[in-house]
Design a protein around this nucleic acid. Structure first.
Length: 424
DNA sequence: TCTGGGGTCCTAGGACCC
DNA sequence: TCTGGGGTCCTAGGACCC
């Protein structure tokens, strides 16, 4: 049977979340910044029209923003995750064959639905999501995931579509692929686009019709070949119903202020390790490899230094205390005195299932007591609030290195003290 | 003054084994 | 001049995504 995929994508997702609680910002330019209020990571159409590019540093565009009264927010990920869950739950009402692809995107398998009415059905999905959550979405429909992505992009860009576009019909498909730039195809990045253009492939249809498949495979790996087939309506990327466990967990942050001393670096590494461990335990896993990375500010004209190193554990663990201890020994190895550091990272890898992992004969295995302690810690923090209880190594006060978030909106839906108030 | 964070997959090439 | 060969596993690095 011919497959049918729909890609539902939230419009300017982070900005739309901020607008939910600020109806006064409708039709008003809104932007959301990355950690440390560094770069724009989400922009509404009004902001895009002002010429602020994706990923642009805020300080370079602050004047334009001030002049045009742009509402600029620090990222509030707790809010976005919460709203994302609501959107996904609404979508689940339409089909159980759903893949949550990212915080603001989901693929729906609509195979078997009546093709004549499918566009109307997707308008219905769109309206329902908007009514239930307040988040505007665009929907693209195609026989493969790559084609659904193409259709989605057209739905969002082209106002005539009113947010839904299908390339199931040959005519629309050919029109779309003829006008779709190669670098905009899902999975074709900057480097590949340059190489493709050298082969005379400029539009999506050029790749679809390119006869030398072997060359595509050789230059763009098997993924490139699969993308070519997907453009030919041959589905190569199946829908992944269940969310797989992470194979590596990274916690990495730039500092709010430069860091020189080992003591502060240790504190930050302890904090990042704690966060990573929390995620590790949440997916009921343990790990045996810990990597630590530190780096100076590449934009600053000072001595540059970046170094990573790792340690392999003899027995798997998810115990925050053990992992901090190991991370610190790595940090001590790579730390050089007298340098201005800007960023640190902790990465947990070689992740295994907590229940099925091999117990080490000689290693320092987690005891039942250790496991119970970590579970208690997670339970208290889940109930009483994030970091209510933490390892002392993380420090007690918000130190200077802690990231800056000056423009953060209140925790409308995740903190009782900041809940949305209606004045009468 | 101020420039993000967190993932996945693929391939080439080295190490190692018989 | 010729210097074994084939297989597996692992890792680093590149490319890509949101």
């Amino acid at each position: 049977m011919n497959k049918i995929f729909a890609l539902v994508d939230c419009n300017s997702f982070y900005c739309s979340c901020e607008r939910l609680f600020r109806p006064d910002l409708r039709n008003h330019p809104v932007g959301v910044l990355s950690n440390n209020d560094g770069c724009f990571v989400s922009r509404t159409n009004e902001l895009k029209k002002l010429g602020v590019p994706m990923g642009a540093p805020y300080f370079q565009y602050k004047k334009i923003c001030d002049k045009n009264k742009v509402a600029v927010f620090s990222a509030n990920f707790a809010l976005y995750t919460n709203i994302s869950d609501r959107v996904m739950n609404t979508l689940f009402q339409f089909t159980p064959s759903l893949e949550v692809y990212s915080v603001d995107e989901a693929f729906l398998d609509l195979t078997g639905f009546d093709e004549k009415t499918i566009v109307d059905y997707c308008y219905h999905i769109k309206e329902t999501v908007e009514r239930h959550t307040g988040i505007p979405v665009g929907i693209g429909i195609g026989r493969t995931k790559v084609l659904a992505k193409v259709a989605n992009k057209i739905a969002k860009k082209n106002e005539k579509t009113k947010g839904v576009f299908s390339v199931l019909e040959k005519e629309q498909l050919n029109w779309a692929l003829k006008n779709f730039d190669i670098q905009d195809i899902w999975g074709i990045g900057k480097k590949s686009a340059i190489k493709m253009k050298a082969l005379g492939i400029h539009k999506a249809c050029d790749l679809r019709d390119f006869k030398n498949e072997l060359l595509i495979q050789k230059q763009f790996t098997k993924i490139g070949r699969m993308i070519q087939d997907e453009l030919r309506e041959i589905s190569c990327f199946p829908l992944n119903n269940e969310t797989p466990k992470k194979k590596e967990i990274i916690c990495s942050r730039s500092f709010g202020a430069p860091v020189f001393d080992l003591y502060s670096l240790r504190e930050s590494v302890a904090c990042y390790a704690s966060l990573a461990c929390e995620k590790l335990r949440k997916q009921e896993s343990v790990c045996t490899e810990i990597e630590v990375y530190i780096q100076t500010n590449p934009f600053k004209e000072t001595v540059q230094y970046a170094r990573a190193d790792k340690v392999r554990l003899s027995s798997p663990t998810s115990d925050t205390r053990k992992i901090i201890r190991e991370a610190w020994t790595v940090l001590d190895r790579i730390f050089i005195n007298g340098i201005e550091y800007k960023k640190a990272m902790v990465k947990l890898s070689h992740i295994q299932d907590a229940k099925e992992h091999q117990v080490s004969l000689f290693g320092d295995n987690d005891t039942l007591k250790d496991i119970a302690l970590m579970q208690t810690l997670d339970r208290i923090n889940a109930r009483e609030g994030h970091e209510m209880v933490k390892v002392a190594a993380c420090g007690t006060n918000k130190a200077a290195w802690y990231m800056k978030q000056v423009l953060k909106s209140p925790r409308y839906v995740t903190g009782w003290s900041e809940i949305f108030k209606i004045m009468c």
